[in-house]
Design a protein around this nucleic acid. Sequence first.
DNA 1: GTCTGTGAAAAGTTTCACAGCA
DNA 2: TGCTGTGAAACTTTTCACAGAC
Lengths: 241, 241
Amino acid sequence: MSTGTTPRGGYAARVNDEGYHPDLPQAVVGRLARYRFVLDRLVAGDVNTVSSTVLAEAAGVPPAQLRKDLSYLGSYGVRGVGYDVHYLREQLRARIGDTTHVPVVIVGAGNLGRALANHAGFSGRGFDVLGIFDIRPTDPAVRPMGDLTGALTHPAETIGIIATPAGAAQEVADLLIDRGVRSLLNCAPTRLTAPPDVMIRTVDLGAELEILAYHRPMVPDAGLPGRGGVGTASREGSDLA
Amino acid sequence: MSTGTTPRGGYAARVNDEGYHPDLPQAVVGRLARYRFVLDRLVAGDVNTVSSTVLAEAAGVPPAQLRKDLSYLGSYGVRGVGYDVHYLREQLRARIGDTTHVPVVIVGAGNLGRALANHAGFSGRGFDVLGIFDIRPTDPAVRPMGDLTGALTHPAETIGIIATPAGAAQEVADLLIDRGVRSLLNCAPTRLTAPPDVMIRTVDLGAELEILAYHRPMVPDAGLPGRGGVGTASREGSDLA
DNA sequence: GTCTGTGAAAAGTTTCACAGCA
DNA sequence: TGCTGTGAAACTTTTCACAGAC
């Protein structure tokens, strides 16, 4: 992930040689997109100024984190006042884009694939779902795998979402990569291997559940089988939201 | 998350006062569950010994990470040889349990909720899906919200999965928390607030896509609108799997 | 020699405290 | 006084290198 030019320790340089900002940390990108989304709503509601507290509250993050995140963009707030909603939104767009027309293909038309196709966070947020593909299309909205190549007019720009069963995931990934796709979101319960120039993010729902299961508070009186093994130290919960 | 007894810097103490191991890092728990799953397959295939290389390959993680993860359990391998499959699986179960009969409720019966109900990583891995609930049940397998309280016989042990639209998510979370649920997996595209003794993990598919979109390679010739703003430094891909 | 176990370093992320400007 | 901007610290996670046991 590193550019090789990012200085060690401390933060990335504010502005690089070519006059624009260097890469943002991935976690920051994800949150900036959320802020942009919230700002869209504020614009629609004719709000002109927000403080970090209010914006952070609306986005569901701590105010300090919001300010830190925005500081990666530059200093666009006014001390003692807050942020100009339109201007900040503009700066966010200049930095992370607006994801309108980012092409996406979904492979696998089970419940998960269809859920993703309808997901509010996808088409509702500007992504352009080119199609949902399956080896065995069951309804007219689902296209056969053979159509995939034709649909990928700009494969290098396209994000592929893998929503197949675990057994087919690697094969589908290989196919997409062979067609030139360089960004994959893996929603199948398995891990994928790919060349280093392909970016893969995996959503591992099973792992999420396992983590929750491990950290459950142990209630001594429960009639249910507990963690299976001998006692465990864990007792406290934790809010990760 | 901290126990308050964990020493600063370096790793957590190997064994705590009461003779058992302290909490595992969350990321480690997720991967240990995967190793357990792989070991189950190896047992089924009558394999008796594995090296870290082979096990890591099967789990899709680097060998060094696997060894590091297993070292949190103790030293159960044999140098120069590898791990005894049965014994290692036993140790894993003793530490993280086998998740058999961990009760789970799913709220929201859209495509996503139904996808989760069928998810291979859930019922297939031992979780006990008590039911899928919705304010407006559309098929007999889906139960009305009114049934939720009755289904939650051991709420403190139960994991609640929120698969509703964003607008309903907080309300559902509040309801589950009020009924005693202390572990939530939030799959709705919004953030939740909850008391600190409630553990929430959020799967934010929109954020995942945004991160992929931001890091897409910029192809100069593309006829598509790119990132929206001026040029960006990012060029390299990266495998996060 | 081979493969595990692990301290240490590195990298990534979040939280804090407060300086600084309006 | 109020709220932003940010260096520094704290925390989490990953990677590395090699010591150590068989």
